[in-house]
Computed example of a mutant assay.
Amino acid sequence: MSKVKYYYDSETLSYRKIEKKKGRKLGIFLLSLMGMLLSGFLLLVVYLNLPYVETPKEKALKRELSNMELQFELLNKKMSLAESVLNEIADRDNNLYRVYFEANPIPESQRKAGFGGVNRYKDLEGFDNSKLIVASSRRLDILTKQIVVQSRSLDEIARLAEEKEQLLSAIPAIQPVKNEDLTRMASGFGYRTDPFTKATKFHFGMDFTAPRGTPIYASGDGVVTRADNTASGYGNHIRIDHGYGYESLYAHLYKYNVRRGQKVKRGDLIGFVGSTGRSEAPHLHYEIFKDGERINPINFYYGNLSPQEFAEMLQKAQQENQSLD
């Protein structure tokens, strides 16, 4: 049972009973309802704007994410620089190094090929910055592959350079008798008069007239394959295998300074001028073979003759005189 409430009436100087007014409850209800609606609206506004309200932890994570994006941007700039440098190296590799060493250029499709087959970047997908991360990872992988291709190419160039150096050292390239020791260049490569039969026949070498005992030098690096007098007409002679299809022969020697199987370097003393075998006078008969065929030795003196000396020797070698063997 609700309590009865009174109020003091100052006019009548008496207490009067408080009568409940009609509609009061309704007003209170409506006021409460409006308060609830207003509170709900305010809560809705707060909820809708909640993404824009950041906690300290969210702010720190956002700064970290922004820094990572900056680092990725810097990484891509570094990759652009590396790609530029690598492209210049590849261009020199194809158009200079490989041309010089007679190697086929590496196709562009092989240098910049991607990676087919399975998706290598599946684990990087599904995040806010997946596109950036996948693109950078793919670019870095391709750059790494290009570096591997270029590294292998440079290894090949180094090997070719070493072989080229060995080839240049092996090719007969000097005159086997020094100019100051020569009496004259007696006969060259071509048809000459035989000193014994007086018939014209092909002379397959060059004859260098010099006193007996004049030093003879190896014209290129190689291995001595013969140092004997068992070949008809050559007397005491030496053969040197230079590799790469080249061989040199030194005939009519007085004596040897090397033995069979010995390795020699260009300029090494291998023997001395004599007149053994089918020879008319002391001289060195010199021949060069390429793949088993005799070729003109006149083209193999670039290592120690000046242009003027070479021109003079060429003129003498072309004279159709008498050979000494």
Rank of each mutant, 00 (worst) to 15 (best):
M1D: 13
S2H: 06
Y7A: 12
Y15V: 02
R16K: 15
K20M: 14
K20E: 15
K21M: 12
L37K: 06
L38Q: 10
Y47C: 08
P51S: 15
V53N: 04
S66P: 14
A90N: 09
R98C: 05
Y100F: 06
E102Q: 12
I106K: 07
E108R: 01
S109P: 13
K112V: 01
F115S: 03
D128E: 13
R138G: 14
L143Y: 03
T144L: 06
S153Q: 14
D155P: 04
P172I: 02
N179M: 09
G188L: 11
G190H: 06
T197H: 03
K198Q: 03
M206F: 01
M206P: 04
F208P: 07
D221E: 06
G222Y: 04
A231I: 10
G235R: 03
G235I: 00
N236I: 02
H237C: 13
H242E: 07
L249K: 09
Y250E: 13
A251D: 07
A251L: 05
H252Q: 00
R260I: 12
G261W: 07
V264T: 12
D268V: 12
I270K: 07
G271I: 03
G274W: 04
G274Y: 03
L284P: 01
Y286S: 01
I288R: 12
K290S: 02
G292H: 08
R294P: 01
N299A: 09
N304E: 05
L305Y: 09
P307H: 00
E309L: 01
E312F: 01
M313Y: 13
Q319D: 04
Q319V: 07
